[in-house]
Nucleic acid binder design. Structure first.
Lengths: 153, 153
DNA sequence: CGTGAAAGTTTACGCAA
DNA sequence: TTGCGTAAACTTTCACG
């Protein structure tokens, strides 16, 4: 799955992560190359799936999404059918920003963005009514110290 | 901090979150409006900071970043000076994708993206040598079930 | 406030080296 | 692979309905 990228590819990706709206000429200038090679490389990396998509990053506070919870989940159920239902529920809920299956003691972690604590409770009630869960711990974020989509290259 | 957005604004944001490279004409068509109003609204939302930036989303696996850890941190230190040093360390380390200060028992949670477990251990050793930490639990992600930057509108 | 068109940029690609 | 040149497409502004 990993792909061979040279130094120029990495510089281009770094620029696109900083600001995907820069023109080709601008990017070319910054990475010390010119339009055609930059364009060819960008296209190749899109085709290969290194660049998945380009998106607008919005400010959650400005949209009134002021609460962020990390949810640690333990389950007693490990059958395929239960898991399918649980994953489906997570994928369908837009307030679930991230969901990971974990190694060890805790089975799943979620990151959930909502308007306020009440909205979180509604989400929680809906989730446990859809699937059986053994134990849930919610961690409330007081302050987002850092949040980046910029992967280290 | 929250901003008044109407239905058309929300539709535009939703399109930009799906794909920020769509042309104005395309977006206008999808949201049932036309170029100029869409352009005016996008500019206003950028000025107001609702749209923070636009960025390329890369595939971490394709870049060889195959390990993702959630790190739960408890500290005994709560002085301003310690905190300043700790936050600075987090902001400077590119492998820290997210960092939140929490309410309750656990003080901080981090999301850390690295090449492998060895790279995580290097990060961990470096961090604890920079600042005193009372207790750390690392949760290793086995599977990224969901990961989105698309906020619920 | 929306429509349409005009002017200036940028992209996307062919072709030569 | 890169660099140049260009047609087509897109962005941005503005005058008018």
């Amino acid at each position: 799955m990993a792909v061979a990228l040279d130094d120029l590819d990495r510089k281009i990706l770094s620029e696109l992560q900083k600001d995907a709206e820069q023109s080709l000429d601008e990017i070319a200038r910054r990475v010390g190359s010119s339009k055609t090679p930059v364009w060819n490389r960008i296209r190749k990396m899109k085709d290969m799936g290194v660049i998945a998509r380009t998106t607008a990053i919005l400010d959650p506070e400005a949209l009134g999404l002021e609460a962020c919870f990390f949810v640690l989940i333990r389950t007693s159920e490990h059958e395929a059918d239960w898991q399918r239902k649980f994953l489906k529920a997570l994928k369908e809920r837009p307030e679930v920003m991230e969901a990971h299956r974990l190694a060890g003691d805790i089975d799943y972690i979620l990151k959930v963005r909502v308007k306020n604590a009440r909205a979180y409770d509604q989400f929680y009630q809906a989730l446990i009514s859809e699937v059986r869960i053994y134990n849930v711990t919610a961690l409330l974020s007081m302050e987002e110290i850092k949040s980046t989509t910029t992967l280290p290259l």
